[in-house]
Design a protein around this nucleic acid. Sequence first.
DNA 1: TAAAACTATATAGTCACTATAAGGTCAATA
DNA 2: TATTGACCTTATAGTGACTATATAGTTTTA
Lengths: 133, 133
Amino acid sequence: MRIGQLARSVGVDTQTIRFYEREGLLPPPDRQDNGYRIYTERHVERLAFIRRCRILELSLAEIHELQRYQGAPHQPCRAINTLLDDQIAHVQSQITDLQVLEKQLVSLRASCNDDREIEACGVLEGLSEGSMQ
Amino acid sequence: MRIGQLARSVGVDTQTIRFYEREGLLPPPDRQDNGYRIYTERHVERLAFIRRCRILELSLAEIHELQRYQGAPHQPCRAINTLLDDQIAHVQSQITDLQVLEKQLVSLRASCNDDREIEACGVLEGLSEGSMQ
DNA sequence: TAAAACTATATAGTCACTATAAGGTCAATA
DNA sequence: TATTGACCTTATAGTGACTATATAGTTTTA
Ligand SMILES: [Zn+2]
Ligand SMILES: [Zn+2]
Ligand SMILES: [Zn+2]
Ligand SMILES: [Zn+2]
């Protein structure tokens, strides 16, 4: 199949496919005489793997790492699980940070109603004073 | 004061200060004969304002918008409050997304223990199969 | 006097794409 | 047959908010 069909079947842009190839995440496919890339079913699976990893917000470097592990099937999988543990910890700390942020924003928002002049806006006042960290 | 002292007093890098100046967030200060930037107390306040906004993850464009509002003190402040409401909504949706992500990651992680070979790793299996969205 | 610490500008790198430009290829239509 | 349109190619620049590097000039300290 050509790049457009691969793109449609996995749900990415053709540019993204070429980008992954340049980054070494997708192996360079064979070319037709006219230079067009020709992909196989294995490329579909490989690209779908990448997208599933990206949905989980693994970085391209981490995906590369996973791909290297796939090439060494008889080694212990601890490193893979650790990679996932790290990602979980990362996501959890992001959630915690955002919850703190939300509280700050809500509290700041509560310091004003909609019927003031800008010079009396509680939000702007809160941002201008050093009361925040 | 010179740029280094401003940087230390607000807790940013000198490069960041020059960057904000280029981006139009900090007014260009006077210069000494040797070309060194000289800042006043007003610059300290202005920079601290920017940093407080950045802590709340407002974009530089939004901060610019707030600065424009500060120049029109007698207009109603509704737009400022709306800007904050948008930011709150944005943060809340980020939290929701991350919570979904966390669940997916934890569930994937639960499909493997540490004592397997890579070819039998439940995590890698989960990523390779189409069972995920 | 020489070294350390500071300042200046300009330019490139980060991340994972996304957009744009400028052109080559192919099948179907007027 | 000419041309339209959909597809493909490469190369280059832009996104956001910095951060790093290179190169050079200035001030302060030892
Ligand atoms: Zn084995
Ligand atoms: Zn207000
Ligand atoms: Zn007034
Ligand atoms: Zn495992």
